[in-house]
Amino acid sequence: MTRVVIAPDSFKGTITAADAAESIARGWRSVDPATEIVLRPMADGGEGTVSAFAAAVAGSERMPLTVDGPAGARVETDWLLLPASEDAPRGTAVIDLASTSGIELLDELRPFDAHSGGFGQAIAAALDHGVSRLVLGIGSSASTDGGLGMLAALGARFIDAEGLDVEPGARGLLRVAAVDLSGLRAAPEVLVLSDVTNPLTGARGAAHVFGPQKGLVDTADRNSVDAALAHLADLLGLDESTSGAGAAGGVGGALVVWGARLVPGAGEVARLISLASEVHAADAVITGEGSYDGQSGDGKVPSFVAALAADAGVPALIIAGRITVDADRGLFAASASLTDLAGSADAALAEPAHWLTAAGAVLAESVFRTD
Rank of each mutant, 00 (worst) to 15 (best):
I37E: 03
I37C: 11
I37W: 02
I37A: 06
V38R: 14
V38A: 04
V38M: 01
V38Q: 10
V38I: 15
L39I: 11
L39V: 05
R40V: 13
R40W: 07
R40P: 06
R40F: 01
P41D: 08
P41Y: 07
M42E: 11
M42F: 04
M42D: 11
M42T: 08
A43E: 08
A43W: 06
A43S: 15
D44R: 10
D44Y: 03
D44N: 06
D44E: 06
D44H: 06
G45E: 12
G45T: 08
G46C: 06
E47I: 12
E47N: 14
E47C: 09
G48D: 13
T49D: 05
T49Q: 07
T49N: 09
V50G: 10
V50L: 13
V50H: 13
V50P: 07
V50T: 15
S51E: 15
A52E: 06
F53D: 02
F53K: 05
F53Q: 02
F53W: 05
F53Y: 14
F53R: 05
A54L: 06
A55D: 03
A55L: 00
A55H: 11
A56W: 02
A56F: 01
A56G: 04
V57F: 07
V57A: 10
A58E: 15
A58R: 14
A58V: 12
A58I: 02
G59V: 00
G59E: 03
G59P: 01
S60H: 08
S60T: 06
S60P: 03
E61S: 05
E61W: 00
E61F: 00
R62M: 04
R62C: 01
R62S: 11
M63Q: 15
M63W: 01
M63P: 00
P64Q: 09
P64D: 06
L65G: 09
T66Y: 00
T66N: 02
T66G: 01
T66W: 00
V67F: 06
V67I: 05
D68N: 13
G69H: 07
G69Y: 05
G69E: 02
G69V: 02
P70G: 01
P70E: 06
P70D: 08
A71F: 00
A71S: 13
G72S: 08
G72L: 00
G72W: 10
G72V: 03
